[in-house]
Design a binder for these strands. Sequence first.
DNA 1: GTCAACGTTTGG
DNA 2: CCAAACGTTGAC
Length: 577
Amino acid sequence: MSGSKALGGGAGGGARRRRTRCRRCQACMRTECGECHFCKDMKKFGGPGRMKQSCLLRQCTAPVLPHTAVCFACGEAGKEDTVDSEEEKFSLSLMECTICNEIIHPSCLKMGKAEGIINDEIPNCWECPKCHKEGKTSKVTGGTSSADQRSHHREKLERFKRMCLLERRASSSSSSSSSSESDSESDSDESLRGEQGGGSSPSSSSPAPPPPVVYGNSSGGRAERERSRSDPPAVPSPPRPVQMERHLVRPPPTCPEPSCLPLDCGASHIMTRDVWLRVFTYLSHRELCVCMRVCRTWSRWCCDKRLWTQIDLSRQRSITPPMLSGIIRRQPVSLNLGYTNISKKQLMWLINRLQGLLELNVSGCPWPAVSALCQAVCPCLRLLDLSRVEDLKDSHLRELLAPPPDTRTGETQRPLGRFQNVTELRLAGLDLTDASSRLLVRYVPHLTRLDLSQSGNITDQTVHTLTSPISPLRESLTHINLAGCVKVTEQCVPLLRRCSSLQTVDLRSCSLLSSETGQLLSFPSHTSSSSSTSSSSTPSSSSAAAATIAASSSSSTSASSSSSSCPPEDRTLLKNS
DNA sequence: GTCAACGTTTGG
DNA sequence: CCAAACGTTGAC
């Protein structure tokens, strides 16, 4: 409203109240990232302060009505705290109608409050019984007076159309039943179906348990601004104003309600949620999706994020909005988007909502899409697979790994990369040169596993850089894959020996190497970081190292920890040195 | 009064 | 169509 447009008339609503932070959700509790677009705009981060938007990572997931909101009918505030039962709490809480904007106690309504359609994505939000009844036909009520009002109506109309569109899209893709009103979810694809699709819309007269909500604010945030084809989750909840289009996606609560399965007779099934969950752990994701259609309760339980720690959508020809919302709801720890046609916006939208993500695979995706990561903040990420990303060049890798250019004015802290905590990086099959190795040394200092296989332009220089005395990787690397790097020569082998923790090096298919060296090599682990590779290091550490050492002295089969086949030729390296 | 930031408008 | 800018609201 930026405008104080008191849109009088209409369904009796008042000016819409601006929602405000809940101050309780995870997002509200965290601090500003200082790196996102909006943070950089803030004065406190040295920006001009013109955009006046919240940090992308701090967007409230459950925005509430302002404290000053009161009931349109009785003029009093929400009184849900004064009662205990869910039913009463609902009656005495303030509910805001997404259509007429009226805020009212359901108990103050003349008509049956059960006719309202609750939007449990946002607290205290519904389509009030009045609007729902007049419903979709409320449209433009003639040319009532001012242009202002007309434009407001037009806006609402568009809003409504948009909602219908979203709903249609959602319900056509899911086999979901008719009532796709408030609550029904939209997940379509078989591998990821949304939770609680149960169309319990009008009948559910009690507000849903306040769920954590990922509240996609689109206010200027490009990540959120998805629209058209890259629309993120098509959540068919009553829409916010046309231009805003806030996408609400709710991650599952840690333990989805209820704790037992209610039966028609009123009793509960003998098996509780925990027991069912154990059963569900034996099912594939596909099977879980089938189970979700059984009933609302199963639908919720099957969305338990413990069942979805790893989500694999690789090679899906298209990533749809329902898939995206499905991913967010499940909050996976590991996400594989390899060889999909995900768009930049979709990826950005996802990443900003998966703050707990540890592993991300975008191999084989086009660089323009992957470049979304250049604006992401993923402090937790440990594994990043960029193998065979189309058109990824040195300069792109720099963009990706280097910290944002304007690290404030002071530059007091050491500018560490965006992926500074990544320990495993896969860069196979890219068009990188030796220049990229410097980026790795500088910006990904904790790397333990590095895959540079099939990098035709990489030479010994890369190995030199990675293992130089000033490289932190010299200490951290345990596994390096240089298979198929045709420009690498025998010279790299002594260089590699400088790595104190190195366990295996894959040098297969390196045409400049002798057949003896061009193998998967195992290294003994050096307990000390002294340069001379003392073969006296006790075989106390890892099993792989122990196996290697055994291989060097006698000749037991060395079982590499990383790769299944580790030929006895490992010894060649030790012989060489 | 200050600060944060919501939701609309504007300009490219 | 999107990102930036802006007026204004709401918390304190």
